[in-house]
């Protein structure tokens, strides 16, 4: 088993981060190029709690080294199942993800939480943790190799994801400002 965790503070409000999060993997993110599609499978607004639950399917395409292909097969496309919970009243986004591909050999479970920063008003804290377990039978050495490769790949993708998301946040802010300006002008004309 390998554990991974990282923390980051985004210099944007929770409202902005939780909104831009829905387009984290849009073309504005020029870093996470391994994410080739994001589909929404289900979405429900709980009438009582106002918690918004969303199921998404994330399609990735990333080459694996030769030695690993002999275990996982030659496909470079993999699927991730993600369920997110937005609690608007508590200002908290929780996202839980797991691998769907190669799930009989490997278990990757990730949790991401976005909350307003405690010490810094207007900023948002990002907490990410992941648990990686090779499930295949056989030599411990091979399992260790698979886990080591996966946690390293996870770390690289996490850095790309953070950098790409920073760009999405910056562009989102510009676009929203432009839209507000446009709406204001239209109101003045009317």
């Amino acid at each position: 088993m390998r554990l991974f965790s990282s923390n980051h503070e985004f210099a944007y409000s929770w409202d902005e981060v939780s909104t831009a999060n829905w387009r984290k993997y849009c073309p504005w993110n020029d870093k996470s190029t391994h994410v080739i599609a994001v589909d929404t499978l289900a979405r429900d607004l709980d009438a009582q709690t106002h918690i918004l639950r969303t199921e998404r399917l994330i399609t990735c395409k990333q080459a694996a080294p030769k030695w690993l292909k002999s275990f996982l097969g030659s496909s470079e496309v993999s699927y991730v199942y993600e369920v997110s919970y937005v609690d608007q009243k508590a200002k908290k986004v929780t996202m839980c993800s797991q691998n769907m591909t190669w799930s009989d050999l490997l278990s990757v479970q990730e949790k991401v939480v976005y909350t307003p920063s405690r010490g810094a008003p207007g900023k948002t804290t990002f907490e990410q943790s992941a648990k990686i377990i090779a499930l295949c039978g056989g030599w411990q050495k091979i399992k260790n190799g698979i886990e080591e490769f996966t946690v390293e790949r996870f770390r690289q993708n996490a850095v790309k994801g953070r950098e790409g998301f920073e760009r999405v946040l910056a562009i989102s802010r510009e676009v929203f400002a432009e839209q507000r300006e446009q709406a204001r002008k239209e109101k003045m004309v009317a």
């Binding site: 399917l57 699927y79 199942y81 839980c96 797991q98």
Partner: peptide, 26 residues
């Protein structure tokens, strides 16, 4: 053929639903 894989993933996620769909302490 992704629908079957999704069924398995959904079953695995039941615990998260139970934990995160309830009202948090406010």
């Amino acid at each position: 053929g992704i629908d079957q894989m999704l069924e398995d993933a959904r079953a695995d996620n039941k615990e998260n639903d139970a934990e995160y769909m309830k009202l948090s302490a406010r």
